[in-house]
Design a protein around this nucleic acid. Structure first.
Lengths: 137, 137
DNA sequence: ATAATTGCAAAAGCTTTGCACGGAA
DNA sequence: TTCCGTGCAAAGCTTTTGCAATTAT
C-alpha cells in the first residue's frame, strides 16, 4: 500500500504526512521550475488549509536531502527543480519562465574541486528572451 | 580635468554627480562582488549622507547600460561585478564570498541563440565550500 | 529653465521564524 | 508518549517606489 511518495519520505527520514505527499506529487516530473509561492498556490487548490510555512519547510528539507534542487536563476525568487540530474536552464526576462536546456557538447557539471575550493553544485544559467516572447513583439 | 568616472557617466548618458563617481570608483577593479547593501555602507564611510536609494538607482542604471553585471549566485541577495568580460564564479555557502574562476577549457559564453530563444547573458555558477572555510573545520 | 537626481521614508516581495496545537511513529 | 509537523501570524531582509527638495546641464 506504499506509494512512491511514502517510500521517498521514509528514505529521507521524514514523517509521512498528506501535505508532504501532495508536494512531492506536484513536483514529480514537473518541468515548470515553480517558485515556493507557486507550489503553495497549486497545492492549495487540492489541499485547502495548507499553510505556506509547511510548503516552505518541506521544500527546505527536500533540498537539504538532495531530493530536489534550488535554482538561483530568477532574480526575483527561488525556483525549484525536482530533476537533480545535470542540465542547464534558460530564464526568460519577459515572461519569467524557466526552460531546461540541453547542449550537444555539454559542459562538465561533475567538477569536484577548483582552485582548492570544494564544489558541491554547478548551475549554468542562460538569460534572455524566449521564443514565445520574441514572437509577440 | 575629466577623470575616468566623468567620462564613463557621460558615455552612458547619465548626469555626473559626486555620488555616482564614488560608486564607480568603488566598483572599479573591485573583485569582491559586493551586494547593494555592501556598496552602500562602503560609500557611506567616505560620503556620509548618501542614501541607499541613490546607490540602488545608480546600480540599476549601470546594469542597464551594461557597465556592470548583476550576479544571481548568492541565494540571499544580488551581487554586482564591474567586470563584464566572460568569466565564471564560485560562491561559498559558508562565508558567502564570491570568487572569480578561470577554466583551462572555457565554456563558450558567447552563445546568442539556443532552442529558438535569444540569449543575452550566461552565468556559470559553482557553489560549495571555499578553500579557507574548508581549512577552518 | 528644465529635467534628472538625491534623500527620506514607506511599501512591497519573498523568505524565515516562534509557538501552540495536532498528528505520526 | 514523544517528537515532529502543521497552521497562523509576525518578523526579517532585500528590493523597489513616491515625492519634495536639490542639483547638473
Amino acid at each position: 500500500m506504499k506509494d512512491q511518495t511514502t517510500i521517498k519520505l521514509k528514505e529521507i527520514g521524514l514523517k509521512v504526512t498528506p501535505q508532504r505527499q501532495a508536494i512531492l506529487k506536484l513536483l514529480e516530473g514537473n518541468q515548470t521550475h515553480p517558485s515556493a509561492e507557486r507550489i503553495y498556490s497549486e497545492i492549495l487548490r487540492q489541499f485547502p488549509g495548507i499553510s505556506f510555512a509547511t510548503v516552505y519547510n518541506t521544500l527546505s528539507k527536500l533540498v537539504e536531502a538532495g531530493e530536489i534542487q534550488e535554482l538561483d536563476i530568477d532574480p526575483n525568487k527561488k525556483r525549484f527543480d525536482p530533476c537533480i540530474k545535470s542540465h542547464y536552464h534558460f530564464y526568460c526576462k519577459v515572461c519569467g519562465k524557466v526552460f531546461d536546456i540541453v547542449f550537444d557538447n555539454p559542459f562538465p557539471l561533475e567538477i569536484k574541486r577548483i582552485d582548492g575550493h570544494r564544489v558541491d553544485a554547478i548551475q549554468l544559467n542562460l538569460k534572455g528572451v524566449c521564443k514565445e516572447c520574441k514572437r509577440k513583439r
